[in-house]
Design a protein around this nucleic acid. Structure first.
Length: 269
DNA sequence: TCCTTATGTACAA
DNA sequence: TGTACCTAAGGAC
């Protein structure tokens, strides 16, 4: 699940269940044991997300930095916590809840300064109130790289992943192979504004839905469908299927080692 | 039981 | 550009 909306939702859910309560911190898998021991009994004081990076704040200035990578998963549950399986990297448990983290790329104890260094190398995040879309456009508009690759570059814009990338380009009719420097200020403004709305809804619903009401199967007079990643989308993982808007076959290609999906008819700008 | 795949990133060459 | 890393689910046998 891990695009930015997932991480912001996790920040909320960790906070709801654990802030202000004495918490046991363990690493049943063993890879985070030493750090966990330092934090056991400490209160979770705050949580924060920037792009796909999650920070759990303990005491005054101790942070657990988590990045789920491609495989990482988080599972919440009510107490009592079941015996952990041997892939649980990090477990928090208090009187009412537990949460297990498996398979993250990163789970590390960091200082305020180290946390700041991570913020400094990330671009603006559409889900953060402090985000400056002009900073992202400054990079986009100077680049010969494709807009599809730029949207995945976390230094340019933080939190967009393969699903939001594909879907936002479809929603704006933009050919994914256009160079960043050919994206107009008005187009960037529309993309950013749309990402803010789509990703906020993603946090709320904990899934990615991008299909406008007028293009739902019901509105188009077609049978209902289920997309296998959990949300309703136009192009992501729909290669060779008919476009929901124009029925052209959705195309797929490798771009920088990731799967790109687009409609060659609708995305002609 | 094995193989493929995945919403990600870092590093080597 | 290729490869390594982390995990689990689904499909082919």
């Amino acid at each position: 699940m891990p695009e930015g909306h997932t991480i912001h939702r996790l920040a909320q859910d960790y906070a709801t269940r654990f802030t202000g309560t004495p918490t046991r911190v363990t690493s049943p898998q063993g890879k985070f044991t030493d750090a966990a021991a330092l934090l056991t009994g400490a209160e979770l004081t705050r949580t924060e997300a920037h792009g796909k990076h999650l920070f759990l704040g303990f005491r005054a200035a101790d942070w657990i930095h988590i990045h789920l990578g491609l495989f990482g998963k988080v599972t919440f549950g009510d107490a009592p916590a079941p015996p952990p399986t041997d892939t649980v990297r990090l477990r928090l448990a208090n009187a009412t809840s537990y949460v297990d983290l498996r398979g993250p790329t990163t789970c590390a104890l960091v200082t305020d300064a180290e946390k700041q260094a991570i913020h400094d190398r990330l671009g603006p995040d559409p889900l953060r109130p402090d985000a400056d879309p002009a900073a992202a456009y400054a990079r986009v508009s100077r680049s010969r790289t494709t807009i599809a690759a730029l949207l995945m570059d976390q230094k340019v814009i933080a939190g967009v992943g393969n699903v939001y990338r594909a879907e936002v380009l479809f929603r704006h009719g933009i050919d994914p192979y256009r160079a960043g420097r050919d994206i107009t200020p008005a187009e960037w403004d529309a993309i950013w504004t749309d990402l803010v709305a789509l990703m906020r809804e993603g946090v709320r619903n904990n899934r990615i839905d991008t299909v406008r009401p007028e293009h739902t199967p019901h509105a188009m007079g077609r049978p209902p469908r289920v997309d296998d990643h959990g949300g309703e989308v136009y192009v992501y993982r729909r290669a060779t299927l008919p476009c929901h808007v124009c029925t052209t076959e959705i195309r797929t290609a490798d771009l920088a080692a990731r799967n790109l999906f687009w409609c060659p008819t609708c995305q002609n700008r």
